[in-house]
Amino acid sequence: MNSGESLPLLDIESLVVEYHTLRAVVKAVDRVSLSVEKGETLGLVGESGCGKSTLGLSAVRLVPSPGRITSGSVTLDKTDIVNCSEGEIRRVRGKRVGYIFQDPMTSLNPVKNVGAHFVEMIRTHDPQISREDALRRAQDVLAHLGILPDRLLDFPHQFSGGMRQRVMIGLALALNPELIIADEPTTSLDVIVEAQIIELLKELKERLKLTLVLITHNIGIVAETADRVAVMYAGRLSELGETDGLFAKPMHPYTQALLKSVPNITKKDQVLSWIPGTPPDLAEPPPGCLFHPRCPCAFDRCRNEEPQLLKHDDTEVACHLYDRR
């Protein structure tokens, strides 16, 4: 993925998303910059509460209140997501960016059949299309996902968990969006079904040349599907690099520790380690590097000065260990 002359499809520039609560202002996303090139899959990993979902939601300006984007920019192929009109952002959601949420049960309307979901989705963006044509298009999409056409009349509760997630994927793909954001698409599924969905995403990625942002805490899924990986910790980007390189040679101590804490079934007698302590309370973040209270390599500078994301070979990393200035 070189970022040559062509502009990236999604460009996020020092984005800040704050949640204003009575107790404090929490920076859920703190000056994050990253870009997604056309056709690539970016894996966004981190523990719960690291801001990965908030980052995903801000790409379609759906950060729930009391959260709001306070500075920075999000650009989707020349469209300014942060400042565009309400009408413009509606044309982005669903049409230009498809979103797959974690829990397919709560994302589907229980009193509407699956066909009606597709009709609503397609006709909202293009009222010219008739109901029948919309249903036909839904059939085509679902056929790719292994769902029979007659199931369009069924309601969400009549589908199993895996099938519901296929419907969600179908809805996200229905309007041929430029970008798909999948937030924990397999977290509520069983292992075998999870594997089915991952294989499906890999196949769709190849066939439809999808651009995909995959938000997950599951390191295994990222290793399998992503071209590049962005690691987030406490609202900040700590490392960003190509998947192979990042797994072979993780640079940030957090990435190193995270990779060592994941059990690998193909390895015998693996010794797992863990990260002592807990992620910081973002209402009262520690000074300097946010990871320093848990970091085995922390030194004085880490406690006082915040590390910047700097480029080292093919990887970008925010850690004083690599900053020789």
């Binding site: 292992v191 075998i192 594997a195 295994g220 290793a223 399998e224 192979d244 193909t266």
Partner: peptide, 24 residues
């Protein structure tokens, strides 16, 4: 099938998957 379904945290791992169709 269960064993071959688990995502392996290693991008170099060669996966030979036997995924059964359908669900439980």
């Amino acid at each position: 099938a269960l064993l071959s379904s688990i995502p392996v945290p290693d991008p170099k791992a060669k996966l030979e998957r036997i995924i059964p169709k359908g669900e439980i």
